[in-house]
Design a binder for these strands. Sequence first.
DNA 1: TCCTGTTTAAAGATCG
DNA 2: CGATCTTTAAACAGGA
Length: 443
Amino acid sequence: VKAILHLLKSKGPSLVRGPQLENPSVNLDDSLTSLQWLQEFSILGASVPPRAHLQPHLFGQHRPPGSDAPASPLAADPASIGGPLTPGKPTAAAYSRMQCLPGIVAHGHCPDEVDYKTNARIKPPYSYATLICMAMQASKKTKITLSCIYLWITEHFCYYRHADPTWQNSIRHNLSLNKCFIKVPRQKDEPGKGGFWKIDPQYAERLLSGAYKKRRMPPVQINPALQSRLRVNLQPRSRSPCSPAGGQSGLGFNPESQRLLREFEEATSGTMLGSWPVVRGRLGHKRKLGSRNDGGKAPRRSSSPLLSTDEQKDIGPLKGDFDWDALLDSALNGELSLDGGDPLSPIMKEEDLTVRGTHVSPIDPPAGSADIHVLAETQRNTDGSDFDEETFLATAFLESPWPEEEEQGRSDFLCTSSVNLDQLFDLGDSLGGDPSTRIDTLL
DNA sequence: TCCTGTTTAAAGATCG
DNA sequence: CGATCTTTAAACAGGA
């Protein structure tokens, strides 16, 4: 590990081309250890919703020219092979420190950096209520239809594109049951099916009353069943099947927005905070085992209306830069803790790697955006209490969930900034040893 | 027929 | 340990 670290430091610039390298004056050590570029990395992923051009009334954004991706993304979509998976029940800590391990988190194990837009195997750590809120805010409309909620979720969370459609039932159930959401009947002169939904500003009262309890985010574990796939995923990919052009980690929200979302979830943890994706015992016995994986609903999965041709065409390059120095330093410093608490013990092997941490992907409202209807409405229902701030934090992040247009240029840059893991481990070959072993060691 | 919406039930997780 | 919240499953009704 030290040898690799040394290599990275000496040849880092040629191996890891992070945004910081744009500035030649940046000290190498600083650039390798700084996570600033990683933060920026997370925000640049903004990509145009695959079907935004089909529903400009909803998204208010248009697909930039040249963003069309090759057709048949599913053909190369790992999710289409194995289907969505959920990590096993967590067993250890050190999750938050995983922010220093982008090489790992980039493959779906740190909620801050997991590219849920492309990772179909890790269930997003957001509750359905949160997802609904995100969709509502992202729509920049005061109200949103159920189908649009579906659409937004599937476009931003690859997991749901391939998941059993029963999650939609949960969405509907959440809308109906959760007091945070109000149904707005469709006007007679409004064509279409179903009504609209909006956020109920009154839920603020419950927040103030403390009725909603904060919930800890349980740690997440790399499912041993995923380990073989993890190694496969470590292979560099120039394009990601689920990622639209300019696809990035997270939701493509910038750090500020992600921070706001985090605070939002903290403030609304009772209703908004989701539980971590864990394999619940109940799932193993109560749920019909065949319903999710057998041919029963599988056909629908692939033929789901949510996976339109347009969506399937919406592939983009997988962009990502890994702060290997931070990664290795973290490992060396024991920040990647395990159940036993031994940083670089054999637990570091894939089977036992566990992490813990926060779960929200950062997002960022561009200054000047005034189109926050729900926010305004919510604030009107407050009287200057703490909730005002909470609500603001809760909604502001959604002012510009898809800053793709303004970030397009930077995204393009990032297209060329991905580290080639093969190169990395080819270098390691010169040091001898089995590449897979080195991967394990790194992890 | 499919989508939308409501409702009930149950199990798991979290918190005080 | 009970209350609360979240998730999942399912049944059912009504509308497009």
